[in-house]
Nucleic acid binder design. Structure first.
Length: 517
RNA sequence: GCAGCCGUAGCUCAGUUGGUUAGAGCACCAGAUUGUGGAUCUGGGGGUCGGCGGUUCGAAUCCACCCGGCUGUACCA
């Protein structure tokens, strides 16, 4: 069918979405399998939910009429109810647990990998459909459950080939920040909206640096394109208090920056318990903060008892994480090795996953809070990290292609089909060439498919009751030494004949020589 | 969402002050080689110059709007 060019359909993908090829799928499956092994070993069981949920079950508000798809992809069911594509795996899990609460063993320990969707501006490494790999424990209030999450995340990192020392699980607590708010409110009340602004400012520490954060805590900040961001509106002494909580003090020199990292001995201490002591002394918390310190201390003790030292699980008060539903400890898996960015600068790879305690999420469906903790790995981000460190899990060669049976004589396709079937019955990946092209093109096809071998049986071989087997890998190697085409043609490198009856045996043997069977 | 930069073949890019039929390299297809993936040579296919309007005798080139990409920023449950 020929269509007029002017109305021909354009093949194109909406922005922020991507197709995946065989090599990437295989590598990603290997990675997921390693993570799955770790989760299973900890006693978690698989559980999945669908891509679509009622919008209200996902935890936010109904889409508004003007912009129904802001952030989340939404549409109306035929009964006028709003449905949405899930944007994480935690809210659907909470829905599932609440729905089957009485039937589930508690604590309920489950894991799942799945696609999630966010209708946001995509960028390099940021898609509108991406995969997360979650594990959650619902019904356990003990910090032991949180500690276990951190340990499991650390194990998962090592299982996929991130060396110890190349990652760290950073831990803080939403309650620490709440304690800070209590102290600040002692001077002047801080409303929810203003507090949200403070949290957002803190969250930008890694990107904007201490002085950028200070600006956002107070009046506001102008970025390099001249755009102005309104600040949280704290008074200078309040903002100073926040900065000191984050581990910064006024730069004595005041040369270029107002704030510099606090380099007092306690702050450089790589010991979770001393870090907590110092935090208690310098920050000055209200009752909620005091509780957070107890939680974190317990978590640190569990980690130490499990043999996970500060090179793997480290208390770090600058971790903020998702601002909405976390209620206690929060964690972040950070890769600490450096990679070149687009500008050629060397930067740490950064976060590949995170999580925390969300005691209120299941409770939205019930009368009471249900304690829960979990974490999520950003699969594609971890995947690109593994490529950066050349983990064997993702750099391993792609699966080889099928043995291709060439169609030399169109009258005899049944014979070729039978050969392919024989090879398959023997467990060998094989196919008969299904296109229309001649032999040369068939060879090119086999080459492109990554075939280890092709099977050739034209008139000559048939007459002798033989088949030719050509080793494409060895052939390519030999070809580099051949300059003229005449020689190349007559040499027929890496090719040999076997009796027709010995086809399967000979193919097995040839694959073995290649180390592929 | 806001701001800046950018859109020419599948890819990387040329294209003069606005002036014939818009080019190159790589990739792709075919032939040289009635039956051999490489190399070489020859030939071929592929473009509504992101889209739609406007200015002009004439637009890839100038203008307006739209779409897409990149960067920064905002948002990120």
């Amino acid at each position: 069918m020929k269509t007029d060019k002017s109305n021909r359909l354009k093949p194109r993908l909406p922005r922020g979405l991507a197709d995946r090829g065989g090599a990437e799928i295989a590598a990603s499956e290997r990675m997921l399998a390693k993570i799955r092994e770790v989760y299973e070993r900890y006693g978690f069981e698989p559980m999945e939910t669908p891509f679509i949920e009622y919008t209200d079950a996902l935890g936010k508000f109904l889409p508004d009429q003007d912009r129904p798809n802001e952030g989340v992809f939404s549409f109306k069911d035929d009964d006028e109810q709003w449905l949405s594509l899930r944007y994480d795996l935690t809210a659907p899990l909470a829905r599932h647990v609440a729905e089957h609460f009485d039937a589930l063993p508690k604590p309920f320990r489950s894991y799942r990998a799945g696609w999630v969707f966010r209708n946001e501006k995509p960028g390099p490494g940021r898609f509108r459909q991406f995969m997360q790999f979650d594990a959650d424990t619902v019904g356990a209030a003990s910090p032991a459950a949180d500690a276990e999450m951190c340990m499991m995340m650390a194990d998962a990192m090592e299982a996929v080939g991130v060396a110890r020392g190349d990652y760290v699980i950073k831990v803080s607590s939403r309650k620490l920040l709440e304690g800070l708010r209590e102290v600040l409110s002692g001077q002047s009340a801080i409303g929810d909206a203003q507090w949200l602004g403070v949290l957002r400012a803190i969250d930008k520490l890694d990107r904007l640096g201490p002085n950028g954060v200070f600006q956002l805590l107070t009046g506001g900040r102008k970025d390099e394109s001249g755009d102005f961001t309104k600040g949280a509106g704290l008074a200078a002494d309040g903002a100073d208090r926040v900065m000191r909580f984050l581990g910064f003090c006024v730069d004595a020199a005041q040369a270029r920056a107002f704030y510099a990292p606090d380099t007092s001995p306690g702050d450089l201490e790589r010991d979770n318990f001393r870090r907590l002591e110092r935090l208690e002394k310098t920050a000055g918390f209200g009752p909620t903060g005091a509780q957070a310190l107890l939680d974190l201390k317990a978590l640190a003790q569990f980690a130490r008892a499990g043999g996970y030292d500060e090179s793997r699980i480290l208390i770090d008060r600058s971790v903020v994480r998702g601002l909405e539903y976390y209620t206690g400890p929060v964690f972040e898996a950070e890769l600490t090795f450096k990679v070149p960015n687009e500008k050629g600068e060397s930067v740490v790879f950064g976060s590949v996953g995170g999580g925390g305690r969300y005691d209120g999420l299941v409770g939205r469906f019930r009368g009471e809070d249900v304690p829960a903790t979990g974490f999520s790995i950003g699969v594609s981000r971890l995947f690109s990290a593994l490529k950066a460190v050349k983990s064997p899990i993702v750099t391993g060669l792609a699966e080889h292609g099928p043995v291709v049976v060439l169609v030399m004589d169109r009258e005899r396709v049944e014979d070729y089909q039978r050969m392919a079937s024989e090879l398959r019955s023997a467990g060998i990946k094989a196919e008969m060439y299904l296109g229309q092209a001649g032999m040369k093109a068939q060879m090119k096809y086999a080459d492109k498919r990554g075939s280890p071998l092709v099977i050739i049986q034209g008139e000559n071989e048939k007459a002798k009751g033989e088949v030719e087997i050509k080793d494409l890998i060895e052939g390519a190697r030999q070809a580099t030494a051949i300059a003229s085409h005449e020689e190349y043609k007559s040499a027929r490198p890496a090719q040999f004949a076997v009796p027709e009856a010995k086809l399967v045996e000979a193919v097995h043997e040839a694959l073995r020589r290649q180390g592929k069977a």
